[in-house]
Design a protein around this nucleic acid. Structure first.
Length: 661
RNA sequence: GCCAGCGUGGCUCAACGGUAGAGCGCCGCUUUCGUAAAGCGGAUGUUGUGGGUUCAAAUCCCACCGCUGGCUCCA
């Protein structure tokens, strides 16, 4: 009798003359598996399996089983939506990281209350327990079928598919074009919840129709679902927008303008500490510090290519009064004004969207020998970008932000070494702060040629340089086409916020193009002029976004060196007021950021307040301490740490600050 | 920018056509207290802005502004 070998080593005899798929299904079902895998391909239990091969069972414990579940639940949801709103056109409905979505094109606007109705319908479908039956048909036939059903998006999908046949899944009366795999039956659907409704352009392109997207999530059981939802709720409490308000770190108001951050005193401390730290690191690495203005002439940005390449995400140019008046007299329209500015007939100033053109002018201000290179110009440079209103959010997506920017000008031979040390610095930043959930992305040029400046050779060289470095940094990375800056490819460091969204922080970018456009030079050993290569880099990315992410990372409880208030002195009663003031003065004199709790509260209340304010250390001073010239130390999470001399305390805290822990 | 939802004292929320309210915070007084909330009293709102419907609007309608979640773009 034939024997099937599963990759767990178990051997299974199969009755002769029966399809192998059926045997696999029986084996899988017996073991509680929901699918089987051969190589990278997951096969559901009703899909014909290849006759030979090694099979792994996919159980409910494996992460990919959740993907399968969620994909199937998204189909069940689509089925439910179609039952409730028969005219709906289906777009796509994949499983995503923590759940699934499905996009619909329908007349009726979905409202949150509809979700409950849809869920109810879904439960009915689950109860019906139909088999997810896979079948295939030739392309032309498939196309005719979906067209007859009026499913125009599905037709578009089929047109884009490779291969001669198209697979469908049918469960009950619902059929969908789908690659699979799926649950064996709708009844296995487990626990699910629909979460929210959102708009989404068909294929993500704003020229296309706006579809209605329903997001949801699913787990194998109620407990896991509840745990996940609770975890999401918990994560929301770390949201930097909430903590930023509670802890008075920053403020946003439409009086100043959307996306324009006001750093409050406490938030400013965090930023200042980060700036001071990194500035010392830069100086020790041979960087020079520079300062440049916030605006620059249009001509400079025409040379750099920011204007017009980057035009859409800039605040409109500033024009002086005289010119404006003159143009008004000429009855110049706005459209015409734009044209004339693009042509360079009208001058103006731009709020700087990037610091590089200014730094380039500093480089150009003096002659450079190959002996001077690399020149590394660093600045906490504030830039302004007119982001689309719908994109703004808290500190992580704003219209004015400060980059810990620097531009390195070096010889081609020095380039890879410079890139590598920038990457090292970025890693140091992330490691020091314990940001470990970081993804490295190599962002390359995409096919749209209109978005980029420079020659194909320059791009190829730059991409080669980056790949070469990134291979040696010991971090896994992915390459993404179409994510490059307009002047060059880059290595990006991407982290997640409290609700799982990914944000780019640090970046290292190679640029052969701006040196060319600005005609940069250095004199080589051969006594002839050569063109330097530029590296743009920012280990934090932007201080706004970085601090926003950091607030969430620490849940507002900053380590001692970053804490806006490091110590709070808590007198037990008025009797120790004078002694407590002395302790406070001593701490401040030692360079610690210390405050004193307001009088007229019991010690318990003072402790509670300081803990909620996330002050790392409290020193309790009562009659006992005053008498012995001591302080009783308390940590916000570790509790009472015992009594000690103020000098001991200072030494202890200074050590902790130096360690940045 | 587009789709959807939401804007009520400093904060979190209630009132959902009929006199805007609670908790926390804030201010004052009493209490001076030993490791996560002392007691009493008080002030605080042109309900985001502007129009409209109505005898009457926080509540219904329209426009704008802002925020939140997505789509697209980026640090």
């Amino acid at each position: 009798m034939p024997t099937l070998i599963l990759s767990d080593g178990s051997r299974h005899t199969i009755p002769e003359g029966r399809p192998i798929a059926e045997s696999l299904r029986i084996i899988a079902a017996k073991s509680g598996a929901v699918a089987v895998k051969t190589g990278d391909a997951m096969l559901d239990l009703y899909t014909p399996a290849p006759v030979e091969g090694e099979f792994t069972l996919v159980t409910k414990e494996s992460p990919e089983s959740l993907e399968l579940l969620r994909h199937s639940v998204s189909h069940i949801m689509a089925d439910a939506v179609m039952r409730l709103f028969p005219k709906v056109k289906l777009a796509i409905g994949p499983a995503i990281e923590n759940g699934f979505y499905y996009d619909f094109d329908m007349e009726q606007k979905l409202i949150p209350e509809d979700l409950a109705r849809i869920e109810e319908e879904m439960r009915r479908i689950v109860k019906e327990n139909a088999i997810f039956r896979r079948f295939e048909m030739p392309r032309a036939e498939a196309l005719a079928r979906v067209r007859a059903e009026g499913q125009t998006y599905k037709a578009e999908l089929i047109e884009g598919l490779e291969g001669d046949t198209v697979s469908f899944y049918e469960s009950g009366k619902f059929t969908d074009v789908c690659r699979g795999p799926h649950l064996a039956r709708a009844g296995f659907a487990g626990a699910f919840k629909l979460l929210n409704i959102a708009g989404a352009y068909w294929r993500g392109d704003e020229k296309n129709a706006m579809l209605q997207r329903i997001y949801g999530t699913a787990f194998w059981n109620e407990t896991a679902l509840k745990a996940h939802l609770a975890q999401v709720e918990e994560a929301k409490k770390r949201d930097h927008r909430i903590l930023g308000k509670q802890l008075e770190l920053f403020h946003l108001t439409d009086v100043v303008g959307p996306g324009l951050v006001l750093w409050m005193p406490k938030g400013s401390i965090v930023r200042m500490e980060l700036e001071n730290w990194i500035r010392r690191e830069l100086l020790s690495r041979g960087y020079d510090v520079v300062y440049t203005p916030h605006i620059g002439r249009l001509g400079m940005y025409r040379t750099s290519g920011h204007f017009p390449y980057y035009q859409d995400s800039q605040y409109p140019p500033l024009i002086d009064r005289e010119t404006m008046k003159q143009l008004a007299d000429e009855k110049c329209s706005c459209g015409e004004l734009c044209n004339r500015m693009e042509k360079g007939e009208v001058d103006g100033y731009l709020l700087k969207p990037m610091n590089c053109p200014h730094h380039i002018q500093i480089y150009k201000a003096s002659q450079h020998s190959y002996r001077d290179l690399p020149v590394r110009l660093a600045e906490f440079g504030t830039v302004y970008r007119f982001e689309q209103s719908g994109e703004l959010g808290g500190m992580v997506r704003v219209r004015g932000f400060t980059q810990d920017d620097a531009h390195l000008f070096c010889t081609p031979e020095q380039l890879e070494g410079e890139i590598a040390s920038c990457v090292e610095l970025t890693k140091l930043v992330l490691e020091t702060l314990g940001l470990t959930d970081v993804v490295v992305r190599v962002s390359l040029r995409g096919p749209e040629s209109g978005k980029y400046v420079g020659s194909a050779e320059n791009w190829a060289r730059a991409e080669e340089n980056l790949r070469h470095v990134v291979k040696n940094i010991g971090m896994p990375y992915t390459e993404v086409v179409g994510e490059a800056a307009f002047y060059g490819p880059k290595i990006d460091f991407i982290v997640r916020d409290c609700i799982g969204r990914q944000w780019q922080l640090g970046t290292v970018q190679v640029d052969y193009n701006l040196p060319e456009r600005f005609g940069l030079e250095y004199i080589g050993a051969d006594n002839a002029p050569h063109q330097p290569v530029m590296v743009h880099r920012a280990p934090f990315g932007s201080l706004e976004r970085f601090v926003g992410i950091l607030i969430e990372h620490y849940a507002g409880a900053f380590p001692l060196w970053l804490a806006p208030e490091q110590v709070r002195v808590l007198p037990i009663s008025e009797g120790q007021a004078e002694y407590a003031q002395g302790v406070l003065k001593g701490l401040r004199a030692a360079g610690l950021r210390a405050e004193i709790a307001p009088a007229n509260e019991k010690i318990g209340a003072k402790i509670r307040q300081a803990t909620m304010d996330k002050v790392p250390y409290m020193v309790v001073v009562g009659a006992r301490e005053a008498e012995q010239g001591q302080v009783a130390l308390r940590h916000r999470t570790q509790g009472d740490l015992g009594a000690m001399k103020p000098e001991e305390l200072v030494e202890r805290l200074k050590r902790e600050i130096a360690e940045k822990k």
